[in-house]
Design a protein around this nucleic acid. Structure first.
Lengths: 237, 237, 237, 237
DNA sequence: TATGAATGAGGCTTCATTCAT
DNA sequence: TATGAATGAAGCCTCATTCAT
């Protein structure tokens, strides 16, 4: 009722729910679903074990809440990152940067999600699919608007490019996690963006572009020649 | 195939061991690790529960054996696929086709592997990494030989291209699993191969365009010019 | 009915207390003691859970109150039924009718009572006994007055006849509950009354039969006459 | 296989099952269903807690087994008691004696059975009904054969007499349990048998004897005579 | 007096592992 | 080597009761 009085009843309840989710997130990340004890979650959330069950039907429901919460944060973050840009490929770059870091930060959470549908629970599979679809809609939107603006070839295949984008990013993220010495985020971003661009410009099937490319190539080559000649000149006199 | 060839892991196993692994594989696939009971594995393998423990230290060891077995099959299969071809990009295509199908067929097994290192067991993480490295060596080999043969740009980044390759493929595989209506394996293969090619030809940093060969020529010419100029500089006056 | 008459237990209770008892009665009947949750009772009584504990020490106390209330209603009902009649066996018939119907209506409540003393709580056993004794006093009263009036044999055994009466009635009630097709209340009443009458008339110890009975009766009467005459003689001389 | 070697595998299993049932019986009797802990049953049966679940699906199943076992013993015992006699009413007396003692010995077990169907489990209600029907068949048989032999009136109502018999006996048993000072088993037996006989001889609907009114008249006349004699005494000289 | 969120002890049950045969 | 009955630790969850508001 009053923003300055944050402790309304409803808000206190929400706070507790949040505490549980974040405690659970930490533990699930650290020890996996099976390795995490409900009692631990309770203790870490500073709540009695029984209290958990006022907020969540059972352990599984906590996991679901964690996953849902994670996707929501992901989606919000990605949307913000993209909205900060106006140009199609600037948006793409922003999304790339965001996704790469987010995935590295919470890799296990994505796995938790994946785990949800390794158990034969149809409903959970569907949820997971919906979360991802909702998240991925940001990319899809970017892609389609790019087509409208002429930045992306009209015949480019959305889902192929999308798989390329997320696949490469997530696999790279995993690689980077396994090889902590690899820290060239910018290089990865640049590579992925370039790759996606390339796939966007052609029809996806043959990733090469119309006019532009030729002139661009020429431009870069020209630039290198000019630089070389400049060197040449500086030697002389 | 050849008695003098060192036996693969599987060939070394006795029948009972094999039965257990394959029963376990099926159950792990179907119900996940936690969802699978040791008793079930035993029953499906037509073995007494206690007998399992003559062959495997514990449930975890069975999981490890399943994963090891899977990676070995994958590796053998991939190697055979690649060995059937001589040209770099034919090899690539064969590998693509093989990997896509293999991943779709046993997606959950990959996840099981992933699960091995979600539990904080350092040794298992290392094993998983080694399996994958061993498997991925096939691609790496292909890539490096391609460079030797001039099919792949000398400055292409192996690990970037590798992440692109496996990332896109595995993500696509997952997508295809979730959308059974998508069955265009060949289209996917073509797309992935093209994309990888594109990344192989440029330095990975700059993916390329339309007049591919033309611009490549230009670029190589530029390179030669630059080299010549450098020579020029070093000679001088 | 009468303001000057001492209030029954129920009349002394306030509305909330009554609501709880009746909610509890319904739930105990439906789901048994262990199957009923305190929370349910509260909800059905439109009272907060905590409020229950202002009125009742704990769940057990609620059960006790329900049972007490039930016995009180039973006792009041039986008394009214009996008071409507003047003749011994008319009273008996009225009581039979009342008890049969009451037991069928709330069979489970009798069981609840029984349950009270299946737990080794001495005090509760005693309460249950007292309730029943109080209720049964109506029959006992009827029986003793019948003896005074000569309707019941002076040497009939009260407790045997009482067990016959209540036992047959309650067992019959259960039977009727299990066999809903059996609806001949009047027949049952008639049978039970006749049976009790029969036990009342003889000494309870020796109920009588066809042939035998006549001669036995005669024998006992003869005996009494002889005794009376002996008295007579002892006066004289 | 060999009667002298009682420890065959099968027999050992049976022995354990029996041990569990009898431990459970004792505890259920002492503390009721809800009051009994599975752990206690296990300990008393000298078995690990988990072992119980190799023999019984869950706690409820143990209770059911106890009840089933009890009914079986009851039925066997009753049958033996009855088979020891040839005459209808000798059988009846034997059955009475047996039932009275059995019910007193294990009153709570009957209650356990009753409890089974206070929980809304349709299947269990049916089982309980079947057990009882099976047990009661012994009485029914006795009754019908009695009719064939002419010991029981052809128009006597089986189910009324049956309710009279079991009702009186079980109620009496309860009474006796509550009043330990009452130990006149024989008196009870005699009373019940007489009462049942009486109900058997008439049509059940009118359980009174031949010259009923005659003998009653005689008795009332005797009463008046006695009264007159008393008067006589008090007057005198 | 009234509320209902919070508590936490303790129950039932599962299941990986052992061990006597 | 093979068996499968037995084990018992430990988890999830329930629910009567309390207590801050």
């Amino acid at each position: 009722m009053n923003a300055t009085r944050p402790q309304t009843r409803r808000e206190r309840l929400d706070a507790k729910e949040t505490a549980v989710i974040s405690a659970a997130r930490a533990l699930f990340l650290e020890k996996g679903e099976a390795g995490t004890r409900v009692a631990e979650i309770a203790k870490r959330a500073c709540v009695a074990e029984g209290t958990l069950y006022l907020y969540f039907k059972n352990k599984r429901a906590i996991l679901q809440a964690v996953v849902a919460d994670h996707w929501e944060q992901l989606t919000v973050g990605a949307r913000e990152a993209v909205e900060g840009q106006t140009e199609t490929f600037d948006k793409l770059e922003a999304l790339t940067t965001f996704h790469l870091r987010a995935v590295i930060a919470d890799w296990s959470l994505l796995m938790l999600g994946t785990r949800l549908w390794a158990t034969g629970a149809e409903a959970e599979e569907q949820m997971e699919r919906d979360y991802r679809r909702n998240y991925v809609a940001i990319f899809d939107d970017l892609f389609r608007r790019g087509q409208d603006r002429g930045d992306v070839a009209a015949d480019a295949s959305l889902w192929q490019v999308r798989d390329l984008f997320y696949g490469t990013l997530e696999y790279t993220a995993r690689t980077m996690m396994l090889h902590p010495e690899r820290t060239d985020y910018d290089g990865v971003t640049e590579f992925v963006v370039a790759q996606v661009k390339s796939a966007c410009l052609s029809g996806g099937q043959m990733p090469l572009y119309k006019e532009e490319s030729g002139s661009r190539d020429l431009r870069s080559i020209t630039g290198r020649l000019e630089a070389a000649l400049k060197d040449l000149k500086s030697l002389d006199v």
